[in-house]
Nucleic acid binder design. Structure first.
Length: 374
DNA sequence: CAACCTTTGAAGGGT
DNA sequence: ACCCTTCAAAGGTTG
């Protein structure tokens, strides 16, 4: 549905965000939607709004800053989509998908671990982490603080931006380690050992409840699960989140701690790591789900993902543009990052890896009300 | 134990 | 340009 302007192509769906908001008379819808879980939403929203406000302010600054440069480019391409301008003027986010700093170009603050209070960071923090986890940790993917910097020759621009601050390059690496070979070979030093960006364990969400994340996890989307490591996994040895062992679901922690660590360290495992699977970057909604799932679970005491996802789907629609925009932007960044790291990767690569046949999902679209917990 | 369920969005291929 | 399919997360459920 989003292929509104199909063009999206070249730049990672710049339009995505607009699309979702588009038509649908969301205004009304939102209002109605709110009804279903007022409590939850109110809560949710309040948290979002508060922070978002902050974000907006700071964000504006950032945008302003960054926009001068790259936005220029970006804007040019997507101006059409943004024509709604007026509305978003202060919304912040929408002023041109200010990609103000995309990783390699200008690592946006969000990606900077110690970065000064980065506005963008706030942006992300929009969603409060119920469990003390910094939102960024969950939203910002591909990052690893420990990730080793030995600056690999990054694909595309990375290397060409000498001007980039040093930590940037490091962070860079941390976001998305080098792709193995075409997509892949991760130099030993580069292995995702430190942190995943993509989920590692299925229990990810549950564990977070009980602990606070080490600061180091701050950038990984899955940091919680990672850090805690379902099994106290050591940070090192964790492959890049986007990369998953072919056979297994990344969720199983068995997952390869060795996969990448192995190359240079423990030779014990015989299992040869066939080539790792690089997963698709998460879209806005997926990012939202990841972040909010725990909250919903806590609030609703639900466990089934299917049910939770339904709730999240509704909540997603209930979000304001700005709120959603945050996720769209994050998703876009992820996509860009992913693209830079795995230039040759195609979504098609993973086709057939999962034998799913959605078969008839069409049928009863019973509009249950069971969506709101409580 | 793999696939299903459930959501939205992105991407790719086909027409 | 539009439509359809697949995958992304996730964890309980089902066959």
């Amino acid at each position: 549905m989003p292929q509104l302007n199909s063009g999206g192509g070249d730049d990672l769906g710049a339009n995505d965000e607009m699309i979702s908001f588009k038509d649908e008379g969301e205004q009304d819808e939102k209002i109605q939607e709110n009804a279903f879980t007022e409590g939850d939403l109110a809560d949710l929203k309040s948290s979002l709004v508060n922070e978002s406000e902050i974000n907006q302010n700071s964000n504006a600054a950032v945008v302003r800053r960054g926009q001068q440069d790259e936005q220029r480019v970006y804007a040019e391409k997507h101006r059409e989509h943004l024509d709604e301008g007026p509305k978003h003027q202060d919304g912040g986010m929408y002023k041109a998908p200010s990609y103000s700093g995309y990783p390699f170009l200008m690592l946006p603050d969000p990606y900077l671990p110690n970065g000064p209070v980065s506005p963008s960071a706030n942006k992300v923090s929009v969603v409060q982490q119920p469990h003390g986890m910094h939102p960024l940790t969950s939203l910002l993917p591909y990052s690893n603080e420990h990730f080793n910097p030995s600056p690999p020759h990054l694909p595309t621009d990375m290397s060409q931006k000498p001007g980039v601050h040093r930590h940037q390059s490091q962070d860079l690496a941390s976001f998305y380690p080098l792709p193995p070979g075409g997509v892949g070979q991760i130099p030993p030093s580069m292995s995702w050992q430190s942190q995943p960006v993509y989920p590692l364990s299925s229990c990810g969400f549950r564990q977070p409840y009980s602990s606070s994340l080490p600061s180091s996890s701050s950038y990984s989307r899955f940091s919680h699960s990672l850090m805690l490591g379902p099994s106290g996994m050591h940070p090192t040895g964790i492959p890049h989140p986007a990369i998953v062992p072919p056979s297994g679901k990344q969720e199983h922690d068995q997952f390869d701690r060795n996969m990448y660590a192995k190359p240079h360290s423990e030779p014990k495992r015989e299992r040869e790591p066939k080539k790792p699977v690089i997963k698709k970057p998460l879209n806005a909604f997926m990012l939202y789900m990841k972040e909010m799932r725990a909250k919903v679970i806590a609030e609703c005491t639900l466990k089934e993902s299917a049910a939770i996802n339904q709730i999240l789907g509704r909540r997603w629609h209930a979000l304001t543009r700005e709120e959603q925009a945050k996720y769209y932007e994050l998703a876009r960044k992820e996509r860009q990052l992913h693209m830079q790291l795995y230039p040759s990767w195609s979504a098609r690569d993973n086709y057939g890896k999962r034998k799913r046949r959605k078969r008839d999902k069409q049928q009863d679209s019973t509009t249950d009300n069971s969506l709101d917990c409580s």
